[in-house]
C-alpha cells in the first residue's frame, strides 16, 4: 500500500513518518514512535484509553488516522512531566499525575494515561471544574477498577494545586466510629503495647492445612 509522509510534533519533538493512509494515529504513536503510554482498549472509540491531547483538544487516537494528524501538535502522557505546570505540587510531576497517585486514582493503570489526557483538556478549558463537570468530561473514558470516585478526586486535587489551594492529603473516608470494643472479637492483641493500633497476633501459628 502506498505510504504518505506526515509530520507529527509529539511532546515537543517533530517526527517525520511514512505511514499507510489507513494507519491509526494510536498505532503510529505506539508502534512507530514507541510511545507506549497511550493504550488501546476497545477499537470502537468507547473506552478512551487511547486519548491524546491534539491541537488543544482531547482526541481518541484510535478513531483518528495518522494522516489526519499531519502537522498536528500532540501531547501524550509521556509529555506531561515536561509540561510547564509540572512541579507545581509536591513532586516533579504534573499536578494531574500527582493527583492520581495521591488520591489513589488508579489501580491497574491501563486507563490512566487516557484519563490524564482528558483531565488535561478539561483543566485547560475549565481550570476549576465542579464534580459534575469532571464526571462529564471523563465520561468518554472507561475505567473498570476504580468506580471513578478517586479519579474525580485526583482531578480535583490537580485543580486545587493549580489554583493555589492546599489539596487534601488523602482520599480515605470512613463512616462514623462504632463502639471501640468491637474490634476485639475473633482476634488476640498483637503487640505488647497496651494501646496498640492493630489487632493482630504476630506470634500466631497458623493451624496449617490438612496435610501439614
Amino acid at each position: 500500500m502506498t505510504k504518505k509522509e506526515i509530520s507529527l510534533t509529539i511532546n515537543g519533538t517533530e517526527h517525520e513518518l511514512e505511514v499507510e493512509p489507513r494507519k491509526l494515529l494510536v498505532h503510529a504513536i505506539r508502534e512507530d514512535l514507541d510511545l507506549t503510554g497511550t493504550h488501546i482498549g476497545c477499537d470502537t472509540g468507547n473506552c478512551g484509553a487511547c486519548t491524546v491531547y491534539m491541537d488543544g483538544q482531547a482526541v481518541k487516537s484510535c478513531l483518528t488516522f495518522a494522516v489526519q494528524a499531519d502537522g498536528s501538535e500532540i501531547t501524550t502522557v509521556e509529555g506531561m512531566e515536561d509540561h510547564p505546570d509540572a512541579g507545581m505540587g509536591e513532586s516533579d510531576l504534573h499536578p494531574i499525575q500527582e493527583g492520581f497517585r495521591e488520591m489513589h486514582g488508579l489501580q491497574c493503570g491501563y486507563c490512566t494515561p487516557g484519563m490524564i489526557m482528558s483531565a488535561r483538556a478539561l483543566l485547560e478549558e475549565n481550570p476549576d471544574p465542579t464534580e459534575e463537570e469532571i464526571r462529564e468530561s471523563i465520561s468518554g473514558n472507561l475505567c473498570r477498577c476504580t468506580g471513578y470516585q478517586n479519579i474525580v478526586k485526583a482531578i480535583q486535587y490537580a485543580a486545587d494545586v493549580m489554583n493555589g489551594r492546599e489539596p487534601p492529603e488523602s482520599p480515605v473516608e470512613h463512616g462514623e466510629a462504632a463502639e471501640p470494643e468491637a474490634a476485639s472479637d475473633g482476634g488476640t492483641p498483637m503487640c505488647e503495647a497496651d494501646d496498640c493500633c492493630m489487632d493482630v497476633d504476630t506470634d500466631f501459628e497458623p493451624p496449617g492445612g490438612d496435610h501439614k
Binding site: R30, G37, V77, Q97, L106, Y110, I116
Partner: peptide, 14 residues
C-alpha cells in the same frame, strides 16, 4: 504508581 502515571507501564502489547 509512578510508572503508570508517567506512561512507563509495561503491558503485553507494549
Amino acid at each position: 504508581d509512578r510508572r503508570f502515571i508517567t506512561g512507563r507501564g509495561n503491558y503485553v502489547d507494549d
